[in-house]
Design a binder for these strands. Structure first.
Length: 376
RNA sequence: GGGGAAAUACCAAAGUGGCCAACUGGGGCAGACUGUAAAUCUGCUGGCGUACGCCUUCGUAGGUUCGAAUCCUGCUUUCCCCA
């Protein structure tokens, strides 16, 4: 997978670039909508492509492995063929589930033992099996199997956790190198930098991953309970070490402010459930701040959802009507909320890219960060 | 016309002498959500106060009692059955 760095900001570490996959070119910075089980919840791909203009979406190894299962995905000819999304897909490895499934999971040197959240059945994920599953899913970019260290971990735990992630990474790389794609197009593997909020661990982690000369690198284990300034500090520390000529992917982040701060620090790729989940729950992100559309003050506000927004839902529907849909628990409400938020996120990264290219990113970002913190 | 049952907060509905400003649902109001165990979860919902608390409430007017949403009497209203 080739990555081209097109423009670098002078007053900031922000960059604009693009990478090439078998399913198309992805311009960066980019936001990747999360489609855990092979679907971006509540959104038709038609809208995702034409209106939201998503360039790449996520899938999740753990969820897809449990349902529909590997045999179905292989019979379908991979996830692209199964769900009909013909643009790039990135799959997360299940490392985050190691973190989020808490009680129903156990970590050993060999791998992670899970109980399915669906039926309680027991499963073992190893670095090798996770590579194999991701070969079967057929994502363009696949992720190493890691332990996502909690943000409040003490140094000792974080160090041991990182070392396990590092050993698992070697096994992932070996397995990946000795297996082939199943559907005739290229796949690439991104390692993940862990190390919690400890700079020396983060540096060690970043140094280790770069030795594999991967096509891109991810920073994981952030926005998982640590302080926001710690997150930014860790991004800065890690990006000092990661090579400039490869994309950097900040996993699971974040809110619109986090994204601009990430871009400012040299991040190229983001994913987060926030636009979809919060949109489903009535929280709208706009360039002027956040709207809780369920609030009674919108009941008779017949202005468009977002007069400045460029999604069709922003102009088509009024705030009062959208609030009504949420009050009435109509499924259209969460759908509109999700479309709006995703379109806004895509606008945000596209506009950031434009500002980087024309050399005005920093002041624009500073203005946006203040504006977007408002509560409307 | 005769007989029976019931009236509780925005709605529905528990409670039938003190642990009741009153269970629980719904509705309403607000909040949370960051590589999705989430179209989910949390809090509040008589008034005033951040709070300890104080004040006014269980159709209505009286009464019994140390104490009443709960017991008694009148009235009002609603529902059911028989004519």
């Amino acid at each position: 997978m080739k990555f081209e760095l097109q423009h670098s900001s002078v007053s900031s570490k922000a960059r604009a670039g693009q990478f090439y996959t078998s399913h198309g070119i992805v311009e960066t910075p980019v936001f990747m909508p999360v489609g855990t089980v092979g679907s971006v919840k509540g959104i038709h791909f038609k809208d995702l492509k034409q209106d939201i203009k998503a360039r790449i979406i996520l899938g999740n190894t753990y969820h897809l492995y449990l349902r529909p299962g590997i045999d179905i995905l292989e019979k379908a000819g991979g996830l692209h063929r199964f769900n009909g999304w013909d643009k790039p897909i990135l799959t997360d490895s299940g490392g985050f589930q190691v973190f989020s499934l808490g009680e129903i999971r156990k970590i050993t040197e060999e791998g992670a033992k899970f109980q399915s959240h669906i039926d309680g059945s027991r499963h073992l994920f190893t670095p090798e099996s996770v590579m194999d599953v991701q070969r079967s899913i057929g994502a363009d970019i696949i992720m190493a199997f890691d332990e996502c260290t909690p943000g409040d971990a003490d140094y000792d735990y974080a160090k041991k956790s990182l070392e396990l992630t590092q050993r698992w990474l070697e096994r992932c790389m070996n397995r990946f190198a000795t297996t082939q794609p199943k559907y005739g197009y290229e796949q690439t593997l991104f390692p993940i930098v862990q190390g919690c909020v400890y700079p020396d661990l983060r540096i060690k982690a970043a140094e280790q991953v770069t030795t594999f000369n991967a096509d891109g690198y991810a920073i994981g284990g952030l926005s998982v309970g640590e302080k926001e300034e710690d997150m930014y500090a860790m991004i800065e520390v890690v990006n000092e070490v990661l090579p400039l000529d490869r994309p950097r992917y900040l996993m699971g982040v974040g809110n619109p402010v986090n994204i601009l701060e990430g871009i400012d620090r040299g991040i190229d790729m983001f994913d987060c459930v926030m636009p979809t989940r919060n949109g489903r729950n009535g929280m709208l992100f706009t360039r002027n701040g956040v709207i809780n559309i369920r609030n009674s003050k919108w009941a008779d506000d017949f202005s468009p959802i977002d007069p400045e927004g460029d999604s069709f839902v922003d102009q088509q529907y009024t705030k009062a009507y959208l609030r009504h849909l949420f009050q009435a628990k109509e499924m259209l409400g969460p759908m509109i909320g999700s479309i709006h938020n995703l379109a806004f996120y895509m606008w945000l990264v596209d506009e950031a890219r434009r500002q980087i290219i024309q050399g005005s990113f920093k002041p624009w970002k500073e203005r946006m960060v203040v504006q977007m913190r408002n509560r409307l």
